[in-house]
């Protein structure tokens, strides 16, 4: 594989189509700066600010762009809200379409056939494997991402977080809770 990628890089470099320094910058950005913290801030903001939440659910691409800290978020980002009666999950049944600029690169399981195929057949079973057991009466909706349309789950704000600021709330938002395979962390109870 190393040889194949090196050959790709060499040929594209000779044609003037890539610059190794730019490749390094891209890798560095994804390894260090682009990760689920970006998405967590969006979720925390929506929990705190009803106007932002409304804007996010109406047009997530525009709402997230208005925060200014995110690069490309794809042509069409849709935020789907978890409710006491509804839980949302995201998959890409074709390959691995994912809102990388909000969540970083997808985890290995997101790219695996077991997840891609099982979640559409048995979402509740998949959730149980992630340690999430939802009441039987709760509806589960699975959204299939594409290259053009990506989804961000807006999880429910945990109880006991009254008075928390954006950073404190964002620290409770996990990557999996924004894919729908997990729930936000619960606040630590003080002594």
């Amino acid at each position: 594989m190393t040889l194949r990628v090196r050959a790709l890089e060499t040929v594209l470099l000779e044609k003037g189509l890539i610059d190794p320094a730019v490749l390094d910058l891209i890798v560095e950005a994804y390894e260090t700066r682009i990760g689920p913290r970006n998405g967590a801030k969006v979720v925390a903001r929506a929990w705190l600010d009803p106007d932002f939440k409304r804007a996010l659910l109406e047009d997530a691409t525009a709402a997230v762009s208005s925060l200014g800290h995110v690069g490309e978020i794809g042509d069409h980002l849709i935020a789907v809200e978890n409710l006491p009666t509804l839980h949302n999950m995201v998959v890409c049944t074709l390959c691995s379409c994912y809102p990388t600029d909000l969540l970083g690169l997808p985890p290995v399981w997101y790219k695996s056939a077991p997840y891609r195929s099982r979640v559409v057949r048995n979402a509740r079973g998949v959730l149980a494997e992630f340690g999430v057991n939802l009441p039987p009466e709760m509806e589960i909706r699975v959204w299939d991402s594409t290259a053009e349309t990506r989804f961000l789950v807006l999880p429910m704000r945990p109880a006991g977080t009254e008075g928390f600021d954006v950073d404190a709330l964002a620290s409770l938002v996990t990557r999996d809770s924004m894919i729908g395979t997990g729930l936000p962390k619960l606040p630590e109870v003080g002594p």
């Binding site: 594989m1 190393t2 090196r6 890089e9 890539i18 490749l23 890798v27 994804y30 690169l105």
Partner: peptide, 9 residues
Amino acid sequence: PWEAQAFAI
């Protein structure tokens, strides 16, 4: 490393 290079390309 090749995975990172391929991703970036």
